[in-house]
Simulated scan of single mutants.
Amino acid sequence: MSQQIIGLLNPLLAITWALAFVILWLFQKERKYILLIAFSYLAFSCGIFISNVGISAQSVLHVLGTHVSYSAAMITMVWGVSRRINAPPRGLLNLAILIGATPLILWLYLNSDLINIRVIAANGAYSVVLLIGAHNLWYSRKNTKLEYWLLVLFVLLAIQGLVRPVTFFWLEGAVLNADYRESIYYSTLNLSMSILSLLLALTLVIICIDDYWREMKSEAAISDASNAISNRKCQLDKLQQVMATNIHRNHDLTIKKLAEETGIQTHQLRRMINKELGYRNFRDFVNLHRVKEAQVMLSDPKFSTASITEIAFDCGFNSIPSFNRVFKAEVGETPSDYRE
């Protein structure tokens, strides 16, 4: 009776895990590996049910049903984990191992003297598939603690899958024809498998959640960067608009006043002028605008009667010496030479 209860509870637990992975997939549908893991647990639930409740252990359908279900679970589990890390799943190799083990398992089952050795043969095939998955994890890992832990679990499950039945049959003395499932050792040694399976499921759930969280953080960072670029462009446009009003003509113009006119914070405006526009400081930025306007006025016949001093003051300079110095530094000649 207890065996039947366990046989019902374990499949329900596996189905619960499958549903959990489906729910996780709904939040990140581009990650197909989550669906593969969900199918793996669904196949596990079928295998557990057939093994413990669904079909009589004396039937060949029991052997085939259990083996097919567990094989599908192993292949899709390794495939899903390998797909996540972009490793080759080696699906054909896994399939060949599991299909190749099927005739041996059936022959051992049909040979009444070796009926229980089929469990060792089947578990051996499953362990090899898990070790292939561990190999993929090792060579394609991203050096995260979760992936190292997942690798350890795959290796432990592979070792346990082979050692557990061998140890049980040795303790029970039931390598030959006997109903091993009625033994106390069977339930006791199954506890280790249950614990490792639970840890595997929890680890995979945490990995899926972690992948989703990392993606959300990445998208948020990209969005923030995009917003920052857009905001910076708006600020540059605003600065150009304000400078186009000839605010540089103001003799008392300071970076604080310009910041008030543009609506940009002073430290942001200073960083924009220095790093994005390439000026050494605010004064060089303003003086360049003044020099450009002076060049226009010195070249325009409409201002031919205006003195250089008048032009200098109209453009925002406070003194002739500073105007001459800045103009020559920017243009390469004095205002008088430029006008000629």
Rank of each mutant, 00 (worst) to 15 (best):
I117V: 10
M74W: 02
V78Y: 03
I75C: 03
I105R: 02
R90E: 12
I85D: 04
A73C: 10
R84T: 04
L95N: 01
V119K: 11
I117H: 00
Y109C: 04
W79I: 05
I55E: 03
N94G: 10
A72V: 12
H62E: 07
M77I: 09
V78C: 14
I97A: 02
I117W: 03
T76A: 11
Q58L: 13
G54A: 15
Y109L: 04
G65M: 13
L93S: 02
V68T: 08
L64W: 13
L93H: 00
I120M: 12
S69K: 05
S71I: 10
L106I: 12
S59F: 07
R118W: 09
L92N: 11
V63G: 13
T66F: 01
L64T: 15
L104C: 09
L114V: 03
T102N: 00
G65S: 11
L110A: 12
M74N: 04
Y70N: 10
L104W: 11
P89K: 03
G65I: 09
R118G: 04
A72C: 13
A101Y: 07
S69A: 15
V78G: 01
L114C: 09
N116F: 07
N86D: 13
R83V: 05
S112Y: 12
L104S: 07
L106K: 01
A72G: 15
N94E: 12
H67T: 13
A72W: 06
S56P: 08
S56W: 14
L110N: 14
H62W: 15
A57N: 11
V81G: 01
L108G: 06
N86A: 13
Y109V: 04
V63P: 07
L108E: 08
I120A: 13
T76H: 04
I99K: 01
I75F: 05
P88I: 06
I120F: 11
W107P: 00
S56H: 15
V63E: 15
P103F: 10
S59M: 14
P88K: 05
R84M: 11
I99M: 09
R83K: 10
V78N: 00
I105M: 04
L106M: 08
L108R: 01
N116G: 08
G65R: 09
I55G: 05
V119R: 08
L93N: 02
H62A: 03
A57V: 05
S69R: 01
A96Y: 02
I115W: 02
G100D: 05
S112T: 15
N94L: 10
L104E: 00
I115S: 08
G54K: 04
H67C: 04
L108W: 06
S69W: 03
H67Q: 15
V68N: 00
W79R: 07
H67W: 12
S112C: 08
S112G: 12
A101R: 00
I97H: 05
L98W: 07
W107D: 02
I85K: 10
P89R: 07
I117P: 01
M74K: 00
Y70A: 15
A121I: 11
A73R: 00
